[in-house]
């Protein structure tokens, strides 16, 4: 039995996705705590704060692409420039099946994988096994 991770972060403006993913995470015993942000800008501000105050960082970030104010790409462009003690684990998760988006996500070395919505229990379990060796 894989142990749940401590802190997961969801950056998505779609309340249904956030609700569903949180429910699935609880059911799969994926994590102990969540952080949820509605767009890239909100997430960036909060995460930079956490980094600067040397607080506990999320073990995994699930990042949506299409969001108002600051989209996933802009968030990535900013966050990769922020120096961190431990490197961040980021999964891009989007409903877009456009190959252009998939290629673009893969061009960031900090992005672990590109996942296509909907979120499923199986996806979460796969992520847990990928994250386990790092913990």
């Amino acid at each position: 039995m894989i142990k749940p991770i401590d802190l997961a972060c969801i950056i998505d403006d779609d309340p249904i996705f956030v609700y569903g993913t949180k429910t699935l995470m609880e059911l799969a015993n994926f994590c102990k705590n969540f952080l949820v942000y509605q767009n890239g800008e909100e997430a960036l501000k909060a995460l930079v704060n956490l980094i600067e105050s040397k607080s506990v960082m999320p073990d995994v970030i699930l990042l949506d692409i299409n969001m108002p104010i600051m989209d996933g790409w802009e968030f990535l462009d900013h966050i990769i420039k922020v120096p961190t003690e431990k490197s961040l684990t980021i999964y891009v998760i989007s409903s877009s099946i456009n190959p252009v988006d998939i290629q673009r996500a893969k061009s960031y070395s900090q992005v672990s994988n590109y996942l296509i919505k909907p979120m499923t229990i199986a996806t979460l379990q796969q992520m847990m096994s990928e994250l386990a060796p790092n913990m």
């Binding site: 779609d14 249904i16 996705f17 993913t21 989007s94 409903s95 099946i97 919505k117 909907p118 499923t120």
Partner: peptide
């Protein structure tokens, strides 16, 4: 993208 975002929510 946009149509899928609704259908994937329904699937979830």
């Amino acid at each position: 993208h946009n149509i899928r975002s609704h259908t994937s929510n329904l699937a979830m």
